[in-house]
């Protein structure tokens, strides 16, 4: 595409009110649909509705799925181990937030 130095690009914030589709996830992670289905069956991401044909996911699934796919291939581990790692990372985040001097 041409130089866009002077054009200002405007996007939208993927916030907690945004939902994403399985197509969004496959493109975001550069994976095939089956990989997303695997992530769901491993409980790594959870759709907000049941019907697989028009699954919708909370927007935080984008970064979570992206992380999962990267960890799986970069660390050469299976998705079950990835799920454990992601849960532990969440726990570290929570503990860090509640750390000394930050309690509510």
């Amino acid at each position: 595409m041409a130089e866009t130095k002077h054009e200002i690009l405007t996007g939208w914030v993927v916030d907690e009110f945004t939902e994403v589709t399985i197509d969004d996830l496959t493109r975001f992670c550069s994976v095939r649909r089956e990989k997303i289905v695997e992530l769901v069956s491993e409980g790594i991401i959870e759709p907000v509705n049941r019907a697989e044909r028009d699954w919708r996911f909370p927007s935080r699934s984008l970064s979570r799925a992206g992380r999962a796919v990267r960890l799986e291939s970069d660390l050469e581990i299976n998705l079950h181990a990835v799920a454990v790692i992601l849960d532990l990372l969440d726990q570290i985040d929570r503990l860090r937030r509640q750390g000394p001097g930050r309690e509510a």
């Binding site: 595409m1 866009t4 130095k5 200002i8 690009l9 996007g11 993927v14 916030d15 970064s63």
Partner: peptide
């Protein structure tokens, strides 16, 4: 490499993503 100007929407939080179609 290419340079683009991006508008940062008000109210964006750390860790959130801005999606540019």
């Amino acid at each position: 490499e290419r340079q683009v100007s991006v508008s940062i929407p008000k109210g964006v939080q750390p860790g959130q993503m801005i999606r540019l179609s």
